[in-house]
């Protein structure tokens, strides 16, 4: 009974993972990301004693951006590609429900993004080891792994956004919607500040309501900065962040399943 529910999800996830990792574009992105990270050595040599710091900052930013680009483009094509190639006919004439399809597709991309972040993270650590004359990796490894985990958490959210939009709009529109919400997510705090500054109560309420409806990802960046300065964020903040991001992911995937459930495949 359980296997009849879980097996299709696993099968779709593995198929999606295979499809994404066998796409050559992914490797082009990986090489591009590694090349920019290597540029950090050059930039680092221009600073005074901050070369490792610059490589770390640049490397993590590149991982976040390239990972984000891969998530947005792979996620927004998720359902569209199946429709375009008419492979969706084969899936939805089997005992596969909408939520199993969406969950499987999402998990497949999550696996792919995990591998990408892991590979780029290993490359970054290797580069730091090479550049650091003392080769004391223990000084960097903890904060880098924690920062990579935060980047991955953010990418999980971006993927869920892209998956949701892919169920009802074209890839181009999905990319625009996903990038816009991702960007707004990093400016969410400004909405709250603006509502506090406003003297109009209606505007205050509207801005506050908007803040609560839109995702707030700025906290993730703040915690990443704290980590890079060698400090540890409080446990409450970490638990809150995890709960916040996962609640959003469940909400978005639930909505995506509902939208897909009502869809026809002519």
């Amino acid at each position: 009974m359980v296997s009849s529910v879980i097996n299709p999800v696993i099968a779709i996830a593995i198929n999606t993972f295979r499809e994404t990792v066998r796409d050559r574009v992914l490797y082009a992105f990986f090489v591009f990301a590694c090349s920019i990270t290597v540029l950090g050595i050059l930039l680092g040599s221009l600073s005074v004693g901050q070369d490792i710091r610059i490589i770390e900052d640049l490397g993590l930013t590149v991982i976040a951006i390239i990972g984000g680009i891969i998530s947005v483009f792979a996620g927004t094509n998720l359902v569209y590609k199946e429709l375009e190639r008419r492979t969706i006919y084969v899936i939805f004439t089997k005992p596969v429900s909408s939520w199993q399809f969406i969950t499987g597709k999402y998990l497949g991309l999550v696996m792919c993004i995990f591998v990408v972040v892991l590979a780029m993270g290993v490359f970054l650590l290797g580069l730091i080891w090479m550049v650091d004359p003392t080769h004391h990796m223990q000084l960097h490894i903890g904060s880098i792994i924690a920062s990579l985990a935060l980047v991955f958490l953010e990418l999980l959210f971006v993927l869920a956004l892209a998956t949701f939009f892919s169920t009802f709009s074209t890839p181009i529109m999905s990319v625009i919607f996903t990038l816009s919400l991702w960007f707004i997510g990093h400016l969410g705090g400004s909405l709250l500040d603006l509502s506090k500054m406003s003297s109009n109560p209606a505007a205050q309420q509207l801005l506050t309501a908007l803040y609560w409806c839109l995702p707030d990802l700025a906290q993730l960046t703040r915690v990443r900065s704290v980590l890079m300065y060698g400090k540890e964020p409080s446990q409450e903040i970490i638990i809150f962040m995890l709960a916040y991001v996962f609640a959003f992911i469940f909400f978005l995937l639930g909505l995506a399943s509902l939208v897909n459930e009502r869809r026809e495949f002519p």
């Binding site: 296997s3 009849s4 097996n7 299709p8 696993i10 099968a11 779709i12 593995i14 198929n15 295979r18 499809e19 066998r22 796409d23 190639r85 008419r86 492979t87 006919y89 084969v90 899936i91 004439t93 089997k94 005992p95 596969v96």
Partner: peptide, 30 residues
């Protein structure tokens, strides 16, 4: 669970081998 369907002009997953594709379909039926 009890039907089989062949669409008109089937286009399947170009990244899979025929064997992997059949395995995938079988897994959908658990």
């Amino acid at each position: 669970k009890q039907i089989g369907f062949l669409p008109e002009n089937p286009y399947f997953y170009s990244h899979l081998t025929g064997y992997e594709f059949l395995e995938f379909i079988g897994q959908l039926f658990a």
